[in-house]
Design a protein around this nucleic acid. Structure first.
Length: 812
DNA sequence: ACCGCCGGGTGCC
DNA sequence: ACCGCCGGGTGCC
């Protein structure tokens, strides 16, 4: 990968070299070209507006491209132009050339553009007064650190940027607040996409399984999408022309329709797909389905199950070294099924899949292609098809960026060109622009179908699910457990009291969390804290280095598989590091916070202490793995374990076929539970975050099986697997310990209380009486919310209420 | 292009 | 006449 980038650098160099006559410029260009090529491709996210200036487009009469008033235009460098190596072409949204930037200005812009100092964007505000030239408003966008270079570079050519009216556009102001707002916007992005999507359609003859109402509805929507004549989002007819109100571009021809879309359902996807695919006329050319390897067998099962046996549906599995690579053969199939890996392995290697014009291409689990730089994405985007579908429960995995590949795959113009997507959607959205977010919502709404089990059509629920009851079972600790718990609680309370007296609660946040963690663990099982009981507080600074103490804290905060979140990205901590002020973040997140701070020393987003990159502490590599301490020889039970086992044995007695999910945030607790389960002869499987995708799929399949010897219990780590995980074989859920975030519990319950569930679902939450768990339930709420209250603003009241929460938890 | 620029025609008022 | 001025030809990069 690295060598490719270097080669790119040299390509650039030779391009520059061809036209450069002065040698000193040469060397400069070389180093800049290399720097630009090695650093990540500049993204729209972090860029700021340097300023604007009026420019002139010339040579209009030589080109056919026209622009409307207010229309956006692209500025494209043409280093190979025989008349001027500095040439900058002006093109409209469809890429038709409009003209050139006049020579002197082009020279100034070429310097800026070739060195990647700024992206230049044009808007034609006023109508052209003659047929030869027109004015264009040029905006210069780039990284803050390049601003001066751009302004000076332009000044050297006698041009002055107007820098008024774009102050405060820096990307790192209120990083936290903005991330939070956006995250909410995305969470809601795929909600409420139901209106005017009613109507039902029966499956084709070939499908043997009768369709459920929501499946008929989806099928009707999909058929409409494939055949619709309505204009794509943001387009309208104005007189004889078709006009795009985002870019102000207009064209004589009807804009190309998107025949397809995104199915973002979180229920019953597969059967919908199958029927829809077969509902179309089967005599047409082939449909290509691309999926991750883990669900390949799922697809085969679905075809087997739902297609009438007397129907000859040609299904070919394009997989394995013996696969038939004949284009003629493949295009004569009804359905060709393959994996992303096979597709990208073939890509660029006389790929038969890329030589066929498919009737339809379907991307299953489409979110797996979200990084446009991967071979997989390139391979997917290069497929030729008349109709295109994406199936994904989570189209946006991390950021809006994730959507681009999907839109490009759908050929949704003009967003299939990355620059237009960045300019019109991504940058405005990441910078919190309301209109940008609105446009994104409109865009998504037009091409996406998403229903949840609570979706309604015409006021009636789309699907009816069996009842769900949630009950709380109080657990009483034994005398011995109670004594140990009270000891830890008193010690913790004293520590926190001291912090409160000193006013340093928030500064010692990691310590406070660790104390709470210990108590929560003691509620589950005393052995949970065996490994980390090396009394943190008793060492003085002299006895143990700061670094070791920080590692100890980091381990304490993370060790037990709890749902620790990074307060920069608000997601689970990846590559955890701890600051000297003892707050835990993802390394990339906090590194970004530090690097965006130019003027002053960077501060910890949680406590405002000064932080430095070289002071971030991470686990020594050998400490990443936990030793297997839970051997069964000296195994002991706990009140909570007994409570669970009592329930499980009662259920087993009632009905041997009942299956249960046993859920904990502490993966080590799951390990502890394995012993009594084995002892009592329960067959069980385990699913946690450390397992490979392949292993997960295998475990899920085992658990979902209705075979008499199939496992009846799944030990599930609360956060394992994303939405979409289907565990409908279970009808009982045991939540072993309360989570900070009730949504996480809900999501977990929804894995079995979802479409396909036929039994009443019973959820049991174990809560230890007179413990931190009871207090947690009382103040349970979005953890994000806690963070925001405490640290999202400078409002002292909010900090106080966070401290109140801690007080409530510790009964202080 | 109702411009700017170029270069030929021209030459007191 | 090695200038100024006039008016026609001309025109992206």
């Amino acid at each position: 990968m690295f060598s490719r980038r270097w080669r790119f650098g040299w390509d650039r160099y030779s391009e520059v070299d061809l036209f450069t006559d002065r040698h000193e410029t040469n060397t400069e260009s070389l180093s800049q070209a290399i720097r630009a090529a090695v650093s990540e491709e500049p993204d729209a996210d972090g860029s700021v507006l340097f300023g604007q200036m009026q420019g002139t487009v010339v040579g209009l009469r030589y080109y056919t491209g026209v622009v409307n008033q207010g229309e956006m235009v692209a500025l494209v460098r043409q280093p190979q132009n025989p008349y001027d190596r500095n040439a900058v072409m002006v093109a409209n949204v469809y890429g038709s050339q409009v003209g050139h930037i006049k020579r002197e200005l082009a020279a100034a812009m070429a310097h800026v553009m070739d060195n990647n100092l700024a992206k230049v964007e044009g808007v034609v505000h006023s109508r052209t007064k003659n047929q030869f030239t027109m004015p264009v408003m040029l905006s210069f966008w780039g990284k803050e650190e390049n601003k001066d270079a751009v302004i000076q570079g332009l000044a050297r050519h006698g041009y002055k940027l107007n820098t008024d009216g774009n102050k405060g556009a820096g990307p790192h102001t209120h990083t936290h607040t903005r991330t939070h707002t956006l995250k909410n916007a995305f969470d809601n992005l795929f909600e409420g996409l139901m209106e005017s999507k009613e109507g039902e359609k029966e499956a084709a003859e070939a499908v043997s399984t009768p369709l459920l109402p929501h499946q008929k509805q989806a099928l009707s929507w999909m058929c409409a999408c494939e055949n619709k004549s309505e204009l794509p989002p943001f387009w309208e007819k104005r007189g004889e022309l078709y006009y795009n109100r985002l870019t102000c571009f207009s064209a004589k021809e009807v804009p190309e329709r998107v025949r397809g879309g995104i199915l973002a359902d979180d229920m019953g996807l597969v059967s919908v797909e199958t029927s829809s695919l077969s509902a179309e006329d089967l005599s047409a050319r082939a449909t290509l389905i691309i999926c991750p390897l883990s669900v390949l067998s799922n697809w085969l099962d679905q075809f087997e199950q739902h297609v009438r046996p007397n129907v000859k549906l040609n299904l070919y599995l394009y997989y394995g070294s013996e696969r038939n690579r004949s284009k003629k053969f493949l295009s004569s199939q009804d359905v060709v099924l393959t994996t992303y890996n096979v597709l990208s392995a073939d890509f660029g290697n006389k790929s038969p899949l890329h030589g066929i014009n498919w009737l339809r291409v379907v991307l299953d689990e489409g979110h797996v292609v979200r990084n446009p730089n991967t071979q997989m994405s390139k391979a997917v985007l290069d497929l030729k098809a008349q109709r295109r579908w994406i199936l994904s429960g989570t189209p946006i995995q991390n950021s809006v960026k994730d959507l681009w590949v999907l839109l490009a795959f759908l050929r949704l113009k003009p967003f299939d060109v990355k620059d237009w997507w960045n300019r019109v959607i991504q940058r405005p959205v990441t910078q919190g622009d309301r209109v940008g977010i609105q446009n994104l919502q409109t865009l998504v709404k037009c091409i996406t179908l998403r229903r949840t089990k609570t979706s309604e059509v015409n006021g009636r629920p789309l699907v009816s699910l069996p009842e769900k009851v949630v009950c709380v079972e109080q657990v009483k600790l034994t005398q011995e457990e109670r004594e140990q718990y009270e000891l830890a609680r008193t010690e913790g309370r004293n520590t926190i009291r001291r912090y409160m007296a000193e006013g340093t609660v928030l500064r010692n946040y990691a310590d406070v969390l660790a104390i709470l963690m210990r108590l929560r663990q003691l509620c589950c099982h005393p052995d949970l804290l065996a490994k980390i009981s090396s009394d943190l507080g008793t060492y003085s600074d002299d006895e143990i280095s700061l670094r070791e103490r920080l590692i100890e804290k980091l381990r304490l905060v993370l060790a037990s598989g709890s749902d620790e979140e990074c307060s920069v990205c608000l997601d689970s901590v990846r590559l955890p590091v701890i600051t000297h002020c003892a707050h835990v973040y993802c390394r990339p997140c906090i590194a970004q916070v530090i690097s965006t701070e130019k003027v002053h020393m960077a501060r910890c987003p949680l406590c405002r202490s000064e932080i430095k990159t070289n002071e971030l502490v991470e686990f020594p590599p050998e400490e990443m793995e936990e030793e297997d301490s839970a051997n069964s020889q000296n195994w002991r039970s706990s009140s909570k374990v007994d409570a669970l086992m009592g329930n499980l044995r009662r259920l087993q007695f009632e009905d041997r076929s009942i299956k249960s999910l046993v859920v904990s945030q502490f993966t080590r607790f799951l390990t502890i539970l394995e012993t009594p389960l084995r002892e009592h002869g329960f067959s069980f499987v385990r699913l946690d975050g450390t397992m490979s995708q392949k292993k997960r799929a295998q475990v899920i399949q085992e658990f979902q099986s209705s075979a008499p010897d199939s496992p009846v219990i799944m030990l599930l780590s609360l956060k394992a697997g994303g939405v979409g995980l289907n565990l409908t074989a279970a009808s009982h859920v045991f939540l072993m310990d309360p989570a900070w975030n009730p949504a996480a519990e809900e999501q977990c319950i929804d894995r079995c209380h979802r479409l396909g569930q036929t039994k009443k679902v019973v959820v049991t939450k174990f809560i230890v009486k007179d413990s931190v768990e009871e207090n947690m339930v009382q103040i349970q709420r979005q953890k994000q919310d806690l963070f925001e209250k405490a640290f999202g603003s400078k409002n002292a009241d909010k900090k106080t209420s966070r401290i109140d929460d801690i007080k409530a938890l510790m009964e202080l």
